[in-house]
Design a protein around this nucleic acid. Sequence first.
DNA 1: CTGTTAGCGCCTTCAT
DNA 2: ATGAAGGCGCTAACAG
Lengths: 328, 328
Amino acid sequence: MVTAKDVAKRAGVSQATVSYVMSGSRPISEATKKRVREAMDELGYVPNINARSLAGGKVGVIGVLVRMDENTDLAELRPFLVVIMEEARKRGSSVMLVPADEGIEGLRRMARQGLVDGVLVFDIEWHDDRLEGIADLKIPVVLIGTTENSYGLPCIDVDYRRVAQLAVNRLVEEGAHKIAVIGDWGRSSDRFAFSKLFGSEARVVAQVLGVGFELFIPPERGWRGIWAVKDILLDIAKCHGGVAVRTPHALQSLLELCVELGIRPGKDFYLVAVYVDGFEDTLRIPVDNIDPVPDLVSRQAVAMLFDQIDGQVVTGSRFVAPRITVRS
Amino acid sequence: MVTAKDVAKRAGVSQATVSYVMSGSRPISEATKKRVREAMDELGYVPNINARSLAGGKVGVIGVLVRMDENTDLAELRPFLVVIMEEARKRGSSVMLVPADEGIEGLRRMARQGLVDGVLVFDIEWHDDRLEGIADLKIPVVLIGTTENSYGLPCIDVDYRRVAQLAVNRLVEEGAHKIAVIGDWGRSSDRFAFSKLFGSEARVVAQVLGVGFELFIPPERGWRGIWAVKDILLDIAKCHGGVAVRTPHALQSLLELCVELGIRPGKDFYLVAVYVDGFEDTLRIPVDNIDPVPDLVSRQAVAMLFDQIDGQVVTGSRFVAPRITVRS
DNA sequence: CTGTTAGCGCCTTCAT
DNA sequence: ATGAAGGCGCTAACAG
């Protein structure tokens, strides 16, 4: 293993200087810097993370706390993860996935062990009993999601209220006098802010605009869940109303249901869905979508996390504006 | 932070003894062991991974190398990840996700840095130019997948040939005289062993049984990809043939296509698909499936990895038997 | 601007 | 069966 000592010897400087060249926490003459850098390259030097961390530096790893249970759709997580890894790498860090199923214990271990510099927490619930414990850990944290009480932890999320507004407005614009919102199976409105805020805000907007409103949450995933929507859908189709769908999966099932029932989306009723741009490629027909911009959310989350890791104090909640695209 | 020194003081022993109690690499009297263990519990001691690693011990982290590009379906990865994390935790280790997109560089860094004790590699290609480099790293590795030349690295995978046999046999059993295999979009037969072996084996079995055979790989994902299957499907339906589908996604699209074309799976033709047990809940109709047993594969992969980490030499390829379930 | 030095927490070889 | 002591590779004072 090539160590900083080897590099130092080769560059004709002290080991400490090598360290300072890397951290930049002390002025070093350009000439020395250059010699050290060359020596590092020539030897293929890679600093040992464990030694660095032990000596008080950063670990170069951020943790991502994710639920892995049956109700979690990892596919929805992908756009987040991709950006998080990209941004982390830009800052010289790696990403570690931490399963949230063992509650806060796993996180606590990691923090104590010194495995991570900070943590991004996904799947925040509206009433989330893990948060107090997480706040106690006193390590850099960013919550991705919305919660009632964040215990002073910084949060970031897409602006769900705005998502709802865009959806309802779009449907009404198209001429719907009555709309239905299809929510998120397995994530009841009470537990997760998305469903909660999305649903309630949609209801408010609908009321303001004077159109009929109904919120429906499929009791289970897939076909059986969407089948329960049948009556509502028929009802909406009868009066040329509108439907807003919360998840890509539900959308797909809904489209299948439409074929089965002989109802034509875009003709018999108006349709808007929440899904990430690009997903439209897989659909049989064009569907207007509101992109919850996981890329922007992640990018900013990582930035907030590293700000903390670098010693800044970050607090408060931020909301990122979603993006609507008309495709019909 | 509670250190081994603190524990030692409280237990009235030396710090070295605390260390030996943990590693078990030296005989310690039961009485001392007990006192030390109690002290650890009372103080909530968690050994510092970085110090341990620096001093030559294990890190307690295994890496999972995964592709994160557009063609990768993270949802398919979930059943693997869940089990890997579970098994890793049983052995006191955490799991780190490593994006494979930067080629082997990321892995090389991690290995040199001392971030992981070993690595599981996913998405192995038939001709995979990363493998030689990985073998050179000389760290514990298990490949999950099948490849032409594994450079001596141990591999594990579901037995794809057996998957193909089960699928074709089932269809022929049902009475099909002609069958079509719908492959994996974005993963051309040449690159990935699954498509390669699955397709070729299915062809062989079909030949042996004397039934017509056609292999089709959708040119893209989703509806547009499956639409290209239309003619084949109509053809198969005309003669009451059979269709074997490689991915859950393709299956879903295919079912949609059936509704659109007015073809009834199970009546107009026989259908078998490769998907994990449990997925049937989301389907409109029952479809016979062959479970590629990601749970069994992962469990064994982790076992093989830890055997290496513990100093054993592990080589060769293993194949796990898939499981067919008749649901129609 | 640079070198010297003292740890960080743990494992392990010597001693006893 | 246990202690004492020397690193592992790096960071961050402390000295010039």
